[in-house]
Design a protein around this nucleic acid. Structure first.
Length: 630
DNA sequence: AAAAAAC
């Protein structure tokens, strides 16, 4: 009994046949099938919470009364791609109200005060009322941003913004941005947010630690807030229908994205749930039943949930792939294809799709383009990494000398340690066995170490990460499970005990340090086993103004087989280049790339920061000043 | 050849 032309109707036409309107959001929890007990369920971790941990007396988010048509900016192509139905996203009657103002019935019970939303900012100083619009006067040298090379291609690229205030994210979200103490958008946010708000699909390449999570979360949250409350179909009573899906390649990264997204969506009425393997599924199912707008997940657990019909993707409006190139590499691609193309998700062009990574090899871009419609390619920053914050060293170390060499590094580091505490050191190795062995060896030699890899239980993995973050065990031996996305503050040193075979993996690994405007050190142990990486490594280091040892240059020259996987993706200074711009790209269709492109942004300073040296992104960050950088 | 990702 659908009564209007809505997104749900569109979905019904394109994806499913058993749409039954009339039930409220989220699997009828507040509708006719509502289970009365459900809305009063309080999960164990929230029971008996002292009153002091309730949200402080923040003013309720003011009603959002701004224009509601930002999804429809004329001329950006969003509306035309969507045709009529998309206009229904802009619920004209959206009138705020408590906590972002979902009408009654949304997320049954969620916003009725029965369950208090845990304040994710409770550790932080929320009384601080920095004037949101005074960010021009903070004394931060954001001019440095102007030097960051930016490349966009695609049709009708929306112009970048300079402040959060000038994009229309809504008051509740703006307040959370303020609580996060994000003063000014990072470069990728400046460009990606207006693109996404304009309704466009996006493939974005931006440095590690450059605020990508917020770049895709803000438009999603904002879009859901202003969107029409969907008529979610009733299929099985226990099927839930998230509106947004965020996929990431590791469990810990999904947890981290979830934590971030919870902060951004605090008191917006938008519910974020995370689902990943290795943890009991029942608790995740309970969370899902309590309502979900944004689902953050790893692929395996999501497929499980889909096959159990506990989750349907029929109502997905937003799809985001973090570490998108990893998600589409050989190991992951079939699973991702299944989720995106073979379940009930609306097709590209109907949903909005955002792909983010610090690296984006051409061949992966080609695969990814299957998931996108008329998308904008965005590359921000140099060679896939904030490398000017990271001092990269390469040392020639024979396999048999690696342990003692590591020991020397750690001893030296301990001597220089601040306040007697060992600086956090992240040591990457090639294999899980190798990780365990090295951890053991470090421990018996007096260096408190722990390890994270796929053979450990999820509990062990999470404990290891926590123990590392707190400095309890300041050395973490890791496989590539920890290479991507994880934001671990204060990592002073990344050691590539075993170098990866792929230069992109190296970029991601060293990106675990040098975050939040801090400097970092990355040391690699190179030997004859790594010859195939020599060329790419030497080039990468050169591009980021690092000292390249002469012996490495010789290795690089010798390695004539430096093609294939190890070649810089697209070359040049960017983490990537739109593969559509390659002259040898052809795919039959002509609708692929017809737009213009622009480099270095929108009339901002030209050039690449004088070959890199002056192009630093860190310049001007004062101590204690937080940006949305991380 | 390895790692990750469901039970």
């Amino acid at each position: 009994m659908s009564t209007r032309t809505s997104w749900a109707d569109l979905a019904a036409n394109s994806a499913a046949e058993n749409v039954t309107a009339g039930s409220s959001a989220n699997n009828g929890a507040a509708g006719t099938t509502s289970a009365p007990g459900r809305s009063t369920y309080v999960p164990p971790h929230l029971r008996n919470r002292p009153a002091s941990s309730d949200p402080p007396a923040l003013a309720p988010a003011p009603a959002y009364n701004g224009p509601v048509a930002s999804n429809d900016r004329p001329g950006y192509g969003g509306a035309s791609r969507w045709g009529g139905p998309r206009n229904d996203f802009n619920r004209s009657g959206y009138s705020g109200g408590r906590a972002g103002g979902w009408g009654g019935g949304r997320s049954g019970g969620w916003d009725r005060g029965r369950e208090r939303e845990v304040n994710p900012f409770e550790d932080e100083d929320v009384t601080e009322e920095q004037a949101f619009n005074e960010q021009e006067n903070t004394g931060i040298n954001f001019d440095a941003y102007e030097d960051i090379p930016v490349e966009t291609s695609g049709d009708n690229v929306p112009p970048a913004v300079n402040t959060f205030a000038e994009v229309d994210l809504g008051d509740a979200l703006n307040q959370n941005i303020r609580r996060c103490k994000y003063v000014k958008p990072t470069p990728v946010q400046r460009h990606a947010i207006p693109i996404s708000l304009g309704g466009r699909d996006l493939m974005a390449c931006a440095q590690t630690g450059s605020g990508k999570t917020a770049a895709f979360c803000f438009p999603i949250i904002s879009g859901i807030m202003r969107g029409q409350t969907p008529q979610r179909p009733v299929r099985g009573a226990r099927t839930v229908y998230p509106l947004a899906l965020i996929l990431s390649p590791t469990r810990e990264l999904s947890m981290q994205i979830h934590d971030e997204a919870k902060k951004f969506s605090y008191q917006t009425g938008v519910k974020v749930v995370v689902a990943y393997g290795g943890a009991p599924i029942n608790q995740q199912l309970r969370e899902l039943e309590r309502g979900v707008d944004i689902l953050v997940a790893t692929p395996g657990r999501l497929v499980d949930l889909l096959e159990r019909a506990r989750v349907s993707l029929q109502m997905i409006r937003y799809l985001a792939l973090d570490e998108a190139d990893r998600m589409l590499d050989m190991g992951f691609e079939p699973q991702i294809r299944k989720i995106v193309e073979q379940m009930d998700m609306p097709p590209a062009g109907v949903r909005q799709t955002m792909l983010f990574s610090a690296t984006f090899p051409k061949e992966i871009q080609r695969l990814a383009s299957d998931f996108l419609a008329s998308y904008i390619f965005l590359a921000v920053g140099r060679v896939g990494s904030s490398t000017d914050l990271i001092v990269q060293r390469v040392e020639f170390v024979h396999e048999s000398d690696k342990r003692s060499h590591l020991m020397d590094l750690l001893h030296a580091q301990r001597a220089n340690g601040v306040q007697g505490k060992q600086a956090l050191t992240l040591v990457f190795v090639e294999t899980k066995k190798g990780a365990d062995a090295l951890e053991h060896w470090l421990c018996i030699n007096g260096f408190p170490a722990t390890t994270i890899h796929g053979d450990r239980t999820q509990q062990e993995r999470e404990l290891a990460l926590r123990s590392f973050k707190t400095g309890n065990t300041p050395i973490l031996v890791a496989t590539d499970v920890a290479a991507r996305g994880l934001d671990i503050p204060h990592v002073a040193h990344v050691v590539n005990f075993d170098l990866p075979n792929d230069i992109d993996d190296y970029v991601h690994r060293i990106g675990r340090t040098g975050r939040a405007g801090k400097t970092g050190l990355a040391t690699a142990f190179f030997n004859e086993n790594n010859a195939s990486l020599a060329k790419a490594l030497a080039e990468l280091m050169q591009e980021s103004n690092q000292e390249v040892p002469a012996w490495l240059t010789r290795y690089a020259a010798r390695a004539s087989y430096g093609g294939g996987r190890n070649r810089r993706s697209g070359g040049g200074r960017f983490g990537g280049r739109d593969f559509r711009r390659d002259s040898n790209f052809s795919r039959g269709g002509s609708d692929y790339y017809s737009g213009g492109s622009s480099s270095t942004g929108y009339g901002a300073s030209g050039g690449y920061g004088g070959g890199g040296g002056g192009g630093g992104v860190s310049g001007g960050y004062g101590p204690g000043v937080t940006s949305a950088w991380d």
